[in-house]
Amino acid sequence: MFGIKKFLFGDGLNENLPPDVKSAVSAWLAQEATGLESSHFLTRYVVVDIASDGMNPDSDRLTGIAATVVHQGIVSPEQSIYVDLTTADETVQARQLAAFLNFIVKSPLVSYHVAFVSAFLENLLKKRLGISFSARWVDLAWLLPAMFGEKSHKPMPLDDWLVAFGLDVGEGRRSPSENNMILARLLQMLVVRAHAKGVDSVEALIEESKASSHLRRTR
């Protein structure tokens, strides 16, 4: 019922969508962030990375979305999804995006340079589904310098962090899925450090992420 109400009173859900997509998206929109989030351990984090054919969210195309769950301290390939947007037509894409929403639920999302990733996602979700996508984002790019100041107190390229942590991730360009597995490892380390610093819930982490971004941007 609640979903239909949202639909009727305007989140601008595309009217041409097939019924199964409509109902899935409405259900997602209606969802509250449920689940236990009283600690990092209990929080279901979803790490997200994208592939695109350019760097500008307004003019370039999103070609793939990868997501992996980090829950109860564990990263598991089984809890992953990959949306290939290179070939599919608009209806297929819409259904795939609905499936993506189904997968992430309302879990907090984790990425590296959230502004970039979220802009691409928001644009496409608006275009295909008609919704204004918003999520609770945790930005590792800003959190890492806040939590691991002894390694670097400023944001650095991801690969520099990997070197700083001594993580061996092989050579060459990584696919979004592979990159997620690495971001997931960084998150695993990060929440342990955050907990030790008293930053022990997802809200606190997001606050910290925002504060860090503000502090380090304005200085």
């Binding site: 199964d20 990868a66 999804i81 990959y82 609905a98 189904n102 696919s175 592979e178 597995m181």
Partner: peptide, 18 residues
């Protein structure tokens, strides 16, 4: 949507295993 999600998960799992 449910079936598509199952497929996408399979693809995600395969890629994440790399």
């Amino acid at each position: 949507v449910g079936q598509v999600e199952a497929m996408l998960r399979q693809e995600g799992q395969r890629r994440a295993a790399g």
